[in-house]
Amino acid sequence: MKDPINMVITGVGGQGNILVSEILAKAASVEGFRVTVGESYGMSQRGGSVSSHIRLSRNCLYGPIIPAGHVDIIVGFEPVEAARIALELGSPNVKIIVNPRPVFPVHVLMGKCEYPPIEDLLDKIKGITAQTLIIESTVLAAQVGDPVVQNIIMVGALAGSGYMPIPRETFEEIITRVVPQKALELNQKAFKIGFETAQNINRS
């Protein structure tokens, strides 16, 4: 097993990055990893890009910023943000789990710049990664009953991808601990669907 495991959760302010990095960090610590999470969310409420760097190691404590080229796994809640992180920190060895639903930046809405066609974007992402799992988490979240659990679908997909040495039960235990009681069932459902979707993807 590679050490450290370097992961980035990325998306747009309001997509629930912080909860996801909390779940991952707690799950990893239950599994005996030393954990550091570096977050940049200063202006996240203002629709900016947000990303959390998560570093797991059995040997030592790593810093809150991943060096260029050293990210192993990217979980992208938005495809342009996933691509941005891949280019900044990735290498041909990186694995990406991405929600293909665009969140258009204001400049795109204002017609000042273009958002690339989604198929082209995903092809490009596939071209620079070792593996890309496309998870329609916004669609799946709506099916589960609430678009906000998009993030938990992605946690499920990460657990189901087998990219991390953390068993499903540990994730489930942490979700039970951090999610408020009244939203628990919804989140458990979301996790399950994400998990199964990732497991059923043909990766040949």
């Binding site: 691509a83 941005r84 082209d120 490009k124």
Partner: peptide, 22 residues
Amino acid sequence: APGYSPETIVEFSTMLPPREYA
């Protein structure tokens, strides 16, 4: 650093719209 060639980075990143605060 492990990563991509400068050409790959330039070519791909020009596709990506910046995300300004809103």
